[in-house]
């Protein structure tokens, strides 16, 4: 319960400035720039160079451009409903930030990992709903592909992030809370028995996150050559800006969850100075983004049934194995 005016103000401040809207926007721009630059360099291209220092402001320019373009609503489509759903998805993603240790006043309660899990699924479902809200067959096809994939990778991702939470709760008493598990998770690496479990679930989490972000090899729902842009085909202007923003912010939030739950968060500097903690979290975050970009640059797209079979045959059982072992260990 929010007690008192000062805590309410604190909550609103966190929501609006740090780590909420303003800070997320900055990080989203940085992440998009970094990803584009790294991806381009891996393919021997230059990437963004024109706007700002080394093109750092290019994503910002893109956002501004999209934001002031005409919002075309196709016939028999919906104007306001998709925008509202997108706004809800952004809200859901930013709400997770409050549960992570990066916010100065984290909200947590026992078993809140389930709430976080629901909030994490929300944006994917919104993106899928977008496709169904247009009369375009590309939208509907892309959405049905997305939903079919969703079931596989959301399950895999949730199992993967549940493993450290279960371990931290059973061994370190984190009460199945995302915040407490994030704080204690680095201790799990000190126990040699748990390291294989952590490695397995880290791998499955990274792969399912790649799928969650609809990046290669899992960009099946928006495969340009087949179904234009899938669920997002009929969207333009501010809605497209929102969609791209959701993509960036999803990468930000999920990578942060991986940093805190698997990579130990502030690990070597648990007692250390604040600047060192911030630096180490930033470095770990960049490493996660870099690894995901590297996977993207390295592989080609799966066929849809290949992707689903791979997820159900290898990723889900592997992560489930880690989870089951972590509940009985």
């Amino acid at each position: 319960m929010v007690n008192g005016i000062s805590e309410t103000l604190m909550l609103i401040g966190e929501t609006l400035i740090y780590p909420g809207a303003v800070f997320s926007f900055v990080v989203a721009i940085f992440t998009q720039w970094f990803r584009r630059k790294a991806y381009a360099r891996m393919q021997n291209r230059m990437g963004p160079t024109y706007t700002g220092l080394a093109g750092t402001l290019q994503p910002f320019a893109d956002y501004v451009k999209l934001f002031f373009k005409e919002d075309i609503v196709v016939i028999r489509g919906y104007a306001k409903l998709p925008a509202f759903l997108l706004a809800l998805a952004i809200g859901a993603l930013m709400a997770i930030l409050l549960m992570l240790p990066i916010s100065p006043y984290s909200v947590y309660a026992p078993y809140d990992i389930i709430v976080a899990a629901y909030l994490l699924i929300w944006p994917t479902l919104t993106l899928a709903a977008l496709g169904f809200l247009t009369p375009s067959p590309y939208g509907a096809l892309g959405s049905s592909r997305l939903l079919t994939l969703t079931i596989a990778y959301e399950v895999a991702f949730l199992i993967s992030i549940l493993t450290p939470v279960v371990l931290a709760s059973r061994i370190l008493g984190a009460q199945y809370s995302l915040y407490l598990s994030s704080i204690y998770s680095w201790l799990l690496w000190t126990n040699p028995v748990l390291v294989p479990l952590m490695v397995i679930s880290l791998l499955t989490a990274l792969i399912s996150l790649q799928c969650k972000l609809l990046e290669k090899p899992f960009d099946i729902p928006e495969a340009e050559q087949e179904i234009v842009a899938g669920p997002f085909t009929e969207y333009s202007g501010p809605k497209l800006a929102f969609i791209i923003f959701i993509h960036d912010i999803e990468q930000y939030v999920n990578s942060l969850i991986i940093v805190f739950l698997f990579l130990g968060g502030v690990a070597p500097f648990v007692e250390g100075p604040l600047w060192a903690q911030i630096l180490i979290v930033a470095i770990k975050y960049i490493i996660v983004v870099l690894v995901l970009t590297w996977i993207k640059a390295m592989v080609a797209r799966f066929r849809v049934d290949q992707a689903i079979k791979m997820l159900w045959k290898y990723i889900v059982p592997l992560s489930l194995f880690a989870l089951i072992v972590s509940t009985v260990i």
Binding site: P110, Y111, I114, A117, I121, T150, I151, E154, V155, L158, I159, L162, V166, S169, R170, Y176, L320, L323, I324, S326, T327
Partner: peptide
């Protein structure tokens, strides 16, 4: 979910989330 986690049956949580999806 809370009851399942309390009973240390985390894999069943996944089945419920899967079925909900």
């Amino acid at each position: 979910y809370e009851a399942l986690l309390e009973a240390n049956l985390a894999p069943l949580v996944i089945i419920i989330i899967l079925s909900s999806a």
